[in-house]
């Protein structure tokens, strides 16, 4: 059995140690906000936080997350209490198809936790998730808005 702490809740899962965390989250715990995009850690649609650090869960074995705090998009904010990043994402009308945006927001939240006032260069260096709809102009603007709000 693999013990995972996801969004503060303990789960005991009968899965292979090498099963990527993504599939444990999506299909064993039914947390489907985290998306599958490529399976090789290239696109970032599956980004979650492990002990606060963004990781690409499609290529991160579930066993490596044992004993750590896993946070998914479901824990970041809610309709009643959205995260500053989520408020900024709505204000700037960032998503188009929206499929990459949970991973994108998880990367942005981690960026701001680490660096509350990122420059354009900081954003370029960290925001390596891919968006096929090309929402990059607004992602950049929304991160700056959220940074101001969080100060």
């Amino acid at each position: 059995m693999i013990q995972l702490n996801v969004n503060g809740v303990e789960h005991s899962l009968d899965i292979e140690p090498e099963m990527p965390l993504l599939w444990a989250l999506r299909e064993e715990i039914s947390l489907r906000g985290t998306k599958f995009g490529c399976g090789l850690g290239l696109c970032g649609a599956c980004t979650v936080h492990i002990d606060g650090t963004p990781v690409r869960s499609c290529s991160y074995p579930a066993s490596a997350a044992v004993g750590k705090q896993i946070s998914t998009i479901e824990s970041i904010g809610s309709e009643e209490t959205p995260h500053a990043i989520q408020r900024a994402w709505i204000k700037h009308q960032v998503p188009q198809c929206g499929y990459c945006q949970s991973g994108m927001q998880m990367a942005a939240v981690a960026l701001l936790n680490d660096n509350p006032n990122p420059t354009d260069e900081d954003i370029d260096a960290v925001m390596t998730n891919l968006c096929r709809c090309g929402t990059y102009d607004r992602i950049r603007a929304a991160i700056k808005t959220a940074a101001k709000e969080m100060v």
Binding site: R32, K35, E79, W89, P95, C97, Q101
Partner: peptide
């Protein structure tokens, strides 16, 4: 005007085909 489809996508409650259960 703000698009009506945006909040659910931001909150990750929008349901895509791949999210079927």
């Amino acid at each position: 005007i703000d698009r009506e489809d945006v909040p659910a996508k931001v909150l990750a409650t929008a349901e895509y085909g791949i999210d079927a259960e």
